[in-house]
Design a protein around this nucleic acid. Structure first.
Lengths: 350, 350
DNA sequence: GTGAAAGCGCTAACAC
DNA sequence: GTGTTAGCGCTTTCAC
């Protein structure tokens, strides 16, 4: 028994030369079969394929990548895949990438610029065909100049696609139309009769959050609505607690809002729970809207109305952009992702 | 202006030969500097390093991987990173992998066996140092024989580590101690005085769910507690709706439970919301426990008591196992991850 | 300490 | 159609 023991990972790796020898053809022919190239008689093709199958031979992707110009791999650097927004986008990207014959390399920067930079370099070493930056440095309102340098350097050797703005680079951008998201939210709330609308969550230095508040103020002013500055001035974070605490503050005001916009779903749910804890009803007393349309929307009470980004379209645009660049297509430097409002049960006419 | 336009991706890739030429040393010396190998005078080392920095040169990882035996990359095939359980585990794995000098290749099988198998082959082509299987086929109670074949084949060329049981393979396993999780939950609920305990969610063909129910019955019987079969017989799924619907069913029984165990946090929150919708209180009328200790636990009302797996320990064990295999350490074929109960506000003494 | 040369496993001209 | 050959960009003996 001992000598037929499985010798795990011990066997010499099989190569196309081994296949070629056994099939009595040249390595090129094996390679042609592998790549599906034209110009092999079906007899030989079959013969070679049989031997490949016999050994379950898998060509070495590294060797392949070395000789080919394209690696058929795309790097994605995300802030944090634990955030459902990123997770959803990633899974959709993976789907379209697979369809286009790409594989994805994912790295999470966890909001640490150092890590993000080293990950960019990693992608450079990996010679991926493109790298997509989602969250992290590209979300900063005031871009860090060192980060810009790194991005530019990398962009010099491979296409870098950004999901945010980054001044000082010529990278393609695929961004959510933040202005439009706020238009949708405000239009909806105003139509429901709300005037006392507040925002919770978000930080000042994140472009999207900044733009949302800016647009929010524009719209209010267009409708000649004045609200206390506490309705929008206090920034927080992007988690449940931020939403909860800021709502706590709002409810302590003499003039409380009738509608609250959470900077994302977590913050919005924090708002909801805070409101309910105060014995008030959502949407009976206060309406709440969230952002990102994550799976959280369906597991809170009431179900949360939220802004969706058509993740599949978002992902498709990203992958198409990579393909387009290599196909030398004319890609607009900035592509905006159209948001939509998914209405559930958290808002009510006033 | 036109002729100083940035020629994106056009410049010929710089190699160690270019560096060597400019430094007037041999490529080997450059390589030694790159790998940090001994046997280079510090003068030359500095000289070479300067030129590397000057051009921001990054060695081609593919070429490196071709000549080196180890790629320093680990493949992870997960069911679905949108599930917070997987996302948390992945991020922790990434952390420990980074510390150990590994990068991670993530693929989501989305519960489709076909995809999972092709991803295993992909990992084979990538010549990763190991592949970790999380969720998917390794969770099946009755392992699919074709899947076993594929795993065995892959395991023949690289270590495959499983987070579930898979009969017919000799792969290392790192698994959550499902029995222990149920011990913790039941011990806690029994201590609180509960006897009428039900389970919602989970499917019959998933090992962990099956084992949990089995243990649940063992414990009940040990304490001579009898419950209606509807308390545990109805399987569902792993989402919010399953938990909700099954709880709906439980509440329609003449003899309703005083405690409900959700097969995961989503299902548990489904149970909570269903209970509250019936005008009952959690934990006042019914206590609820979840599984996975995801971020969801903190954004429901009341905050959910849940089983945690010490994700960092789980991840560390996985990565350590890969390292251990290559260090020819003696790794036990089965390593169990110790769970713990995180007590929040969803349970009450009866 | 340093360099020359072989090789890692594949693809892609280029011949025949 | 098929084989020969030359790389792809690195690491690693093996001389010196």
């Amino acid at each position: 028994m001992a000598d037929i023991e499985i010798k795990n990972n011990e066997e010499r790796k099989i190569t196309i030369y081994d296949i070629a020898r056994e099939a009595e053809v040249s390595p090129s022919t094996v390679s042609r079969v592998l790549t599906g190239a034209k110009g092999v008689s079906s007899a030989k093709r079959q013969l070679v394929q049989n031997i490949i199958d016999k050994y379950n031979f898998r060509p070495n992707a590294l060797a392949r990548g070395l000789s080919e110009t394209r690696r058929k791999a795309i790097g994605i650097i995300m802030a944090d895949v634990r955030n459902p927004f990123f997770a959803q986008l990633f899974v959709e990207c993976e789907r379209f990438a697979r369809e286009a014959g790409y594989s994805l390399l994912l790295e999470n920067s966890l909001g640490q610029q150092e890590i993000e930079e080293s990950q960019l370099m990693f992608m450079e070493e990996q010679r991926v065909d493109a790298v997509i930056l989602v969250g992290g440095g590209v979300d900063d309102l005031h871009s860090n100049s060192r980060f810009i340098d790194v991005v530019n350097r990398v962009n010099n050797s491979m296409p870098v696609i950004l999901t945010g703005r980054l001044d000082g680079t010529s990278c393609n951008q695929v961004r959510i139309d933040a202005i439009k998201t706020m238009d949708l939210v405000m239009e909806y709330l105003l139509e429901l009769g709300h005037k006392k609308i507040a925002i919770v969550g978000g930080t000042e230095d994140v472009t999207a959050s900044f733009e949302k508040r800016k647009r929010y103020l524009q719209i209010l002013s267009r409708y000649h609505i004045t609200v206390p500055s506490q309705y929008y001035e206090t920034y927080g974070g992007y988690d449940y607690e931020s939403g909860f605490e800021q709502t706590e503050h709002l409810l302590s005001l003499s003039d409380t809002p009738t509608a609250i916009i959470g900077i994302n779903d977590s913050a919005a749910i924090g708002a909801i729970n805070c409101i309910r804890e105060h014995g008030l009803d959502v949407p009976g007393d206060i309406s709440v809207v969230g952002y990102d349309n994550t799976s959280l929307c369906n597991l809170c009470v009431p179900k949360l109305t939220s802004i969706d980004y058509n993740y599949d379209n978002f992902a498709k645009t990203l992958i198409d952009t990579v393909e387009g660049i290599y196909a030398s297509k004319e890609i607009p430097p900035l592509q905006l992702i159209e948001p939509r409002l998914v209405i559930r049960d958290s808002c009510k006419k006033i």
